[in-house]
C-alpha cells in the first residue's frame, strides 16, 4: 500500500468522524430523530455483523466463521464474561477449520 493511500484514508476517516459532532451544532434533533438515529446505529451494526460473519469477497464465507460468531454471541447473551465469549468464538472457528469444515 502506498503512503498516499494511508494518508488519504486517515484524513478522510478523521473528517467523517468529526462531521457528526460538527453537524449536530448546526441542526437540532427532536426525540423522533434521535430514536431513528439510535435505531439506525443498531441496524448498521447488525448488518455489519451479518455481512462480516457470513460473507467474504462477495460470497459465502463458509460455515466455520458464522458458527464461531454464533457460539460467542450465545455465550454473551447468557452474560458469560466477554473475553470467554471471544475466545470461544475464535476457538470454535479454529477447531472447525482444523477438523476440515470451512
Amino acid at each position: 500500500m502506498t503512503p498516499l493511500a494511508v494518508l488519504l484514508l486517515a484524513v478522510g476517516t478523521f473528517g467523517l468522524r468529526l462531521s457528526g459532532p460538527l453537524l449536530s451544532d448546526r441542526i437540532e434533533l427532536g426525540d423522533r430523530a434521535r430514536q431513528l438515529l439510535s435505531a439506525s446505529t443498531t441496524v448498521l451494526l447488525c448488518a455489519l455483523v451479518a455481512t462480516s460473519s457470513l460473507t467474504a469477497d462477495h460470497a459465502f464465507a463458509g460455515w466455520a466463521r458464522p458458527a464461531g460468531v454464533l457460539v460467542g454471541g450465545a455465550l454473551a447473551a447468557r452474560r458469560a464474561p466477554f473475553l470467554a465469549a471471544v475466545v470461544a468464538a475464535a476457538a470454535t472457528t479454529g477447531a472447525l477449520r482444523w477438523l476440515g469444515v470451512d
Binding site: 476517516t13 467523517l16 468522524r17 468529526l18 462531521s19 457528526g20 459532532p21 453537524l23 449536530s24 434533533l29 434521535r34 438515529l37 439510535s38 439506525s40 446505529t41 448498521l44
Partner: peptide, 10 residues
C-alpha cells in the same frame, strides 16, 4: 457510517 454514530453520540 461514522457521521451517523457521531450524530448519535453528539
Amino acid at each position: 457510517r461514522l457521521p451517523l454514530f457521531g450524530l448519535a453520540v453528539a
